[in-house]
């Protein structure tokens, strides 16, 4: 086991040398990049990375440029997790055979994918990787929409959000289904570590990433990634929206150890009404019409119920 990088505070963290480069093609204000930086900077070990097809992938490896300072692979939309799992299998094989070129390293294997590539098309591949016990980390950049293809709904798109394939209109309030609880599903594979993170709570996030790197076996991370383009807010407000997401408890921050031990890792001092979170984003604008205001009430009730559920799980220690 390699030594864990010491990150006491933000000043110390800022001495990190990024292994993700600028002049990528992500939108101004994109949270994907902030999440990637916090993951990569959580370790000084070597990295083997993948990205599934999606915003991150198409914006960071457009020939003849790469924005990655570590080995990186993209195969397709659904199989980024398995790409890294294959590389990890090769690492184990070559290590056992004594054929690694630099045998003294402790590489970390990380797969990045959007919610479309994780909750939907890549679901089976990720499930397989989690079940098989590869020593990999899968990080979902959860912006609750197929942003790369222009804003279609995914199974992570929340109720009442307007997406191009679930548009709000004269007789519809947009998406009708609640988002999939992916962290629970992944934790149910009895993996050593699953967690929900947000880039605004960097310390919580980096701690979780480091924990994920320290365990032996698959790790699942769901990171909220506010999308300036599809959530429809000003690029400068990315962190403000992220704050609203965590402090309204729409995105509660917690971890599940070994598939059962749930810990809430962030309890906002002042919980913000869900309405404020919704009001800050264009994708929910129509909910503020009189006929849909009941949905805002239902939103709050759902978030409250989920928070109560997480608290019960934490207390029960099961």
């Amino acid at each position: 086991m390699s030594e864990m990088k010491k990150i006491k505070n933000l000043k110390e963290f800022s001495t990190s040398a990024d292994r993700f480069e600028g002049a990528n093609l992500l939108c101004p204000g994109c949270a994907h990049s902030i999440i990637v930086r916090e993951v990569l900077n959580a370790t000084n070990d070597d990295l083997v990375l993948s990205a599934s097809t999606g915003c991150l992938e198409v914006c960071t490896a457009v020939y003849p440029y790469t924005s990655w300072d570590a080995s990186w692979i993209h195969i397709g939309f659904e199989n980024g997790s398995t790409a890294v799992a294959g590389a990890e299998a090769m690492y184990k094989a070559l290590k056992n055979k004594g054929r690694l070129k630099q045998p003294d390293r402790n590489p970390k294997f990380v797969s990045f994918a959007g919610d479309g590539a994780s909750y939907d098309i890549g679901f089976q591949w990720i499930s397989g990787c989690m079940e098989r016990g590869h020593n990999i980390m899968h990080v979902v950049l959860d912006n609750e929409v197929y942003a790369n293809t222009g804003g279609q709904r995914s199974s992570s798109t929340p109720i009442g959000s307007s997406a191009t394939t679930a548009p709000a209109g004269r007789v519809s309030y947009g998406e009708k289904r609640n988002k999939k609880d992916m962290v629970s599903i992944m934790a149910s594979h009895h993996i050593p570590y699953a967690a929900q993170v947000a880039p605004n709570k960097w310390k919580d996030m980096v701690k979780k990433i480091q924990h994920g790197f320290s365990v032996d076996g698959p790790v699942f991370i769901n990171a909220v990634s506010p999308c300036t383009t599809e959530w429809k807010f000003d690029p400068k407000d990315t962190m403000m929206i992220t704050d609203l997401a965590t402090d309204s408890l729409v995105f509660p921050l917690y971890e599940i150890i070994d598939g059962h031990e749930l810990n809430i890792t962030y309890r906002p001092k002042n919980v913000v009404p869900v309405e404020e979170y919704l009001a800050a984003q264009g994708r929910f604008k129509h909910l503020f019409k009189d006929e849909y205001k009941y949905l805002i009430k239902e939103w709050q009730e759902r978030v409250d119920a989920n928070w109560a559920y997480l608290n019960r799980r934490e207390e029960a220690r099961v």
């Binding site: 692979i73 659904e78 398995t82 790409a83 294959g86 590389a87 090769m90 055979k97 089976q124 591949w125």
Partner: peptide, 26 residues
């Protein structure tokens, strides 16, 4: 023989894993 046998969940994943492993170098 010495190596890693990864019993995946579909043929698509089989070739995906092979691609990752081959790119890793073996």
């Amino acid at each position: 023989v010495e190596g890693e046998f990864v019993m995946v969940e579909s043929e698509h994943a089989a070739m995906s894993g092979c691609i990752g492993a081959a790119a890793a170098g073996g």
